[in-house]
């Protein structure tokens, strides 16, 4: 599978239907997180990056997006050691993930 086709492939994420009305807001907040992370990286503000990563780690799994928790944990850890490259990789991974997911309510 080519990189392009893999990137276009949608990931189906099963989510509890009780959370249906919360999910659009949750995903919108993650889009905002990406902007905040990019701005913080530009400013070298590792505290903000760590806080954003910490929150993503805490929230993602609760909504059923375990990948967001994993990415958040990695961003939090990278921010603590000020590893810019790792942070950038993880932010790209988040962008990619958010583009590819397709929520399926169960």
């Amino acid at each position: 599978m080519s990189d392009l086709s893999r990137r276009l492939e949608k990931m189906k994420i099963p989510i509890d239907s009780d959370l249906q009305d919360l999910i659009p807001g949750f995903l919108e907040n993650r889009q905002q997180d990406i902007q905040k992370l990019q701005a913080a990286m530009a400013a070298g503000d590792f505290d903000t990056i760590r806080t954003l990563g910490h929150r993503m780690r805490g929230d993602g799994g609760g909504y059923g997006f375990h990948m967001i928790s994993e990415i958040g944990q990695a961003i939090e850890a990278a921010a603590q050691v000020k590893d810019r490259a790792e942070i950038a990789t993880r932010v790209d991974a988040l962008i990619d993930y958010l583009e590819r997911i397709e929520v399926v309510y169960e």
Binding site: D18, L19, L22, G25, F26, N29, R55, G58, D59, G62, Y63
Partner: peptide
């Protein structure tokens, strides 16, 4: 203070 986590717990209690 985290809006997403607060919303989630509130939802669970409401459920």
């Amino acid at each position: 203070d985290d809006e997403d986590m607060r919303g989630l717990i509130v939802k669970v209690v409401q459920m």
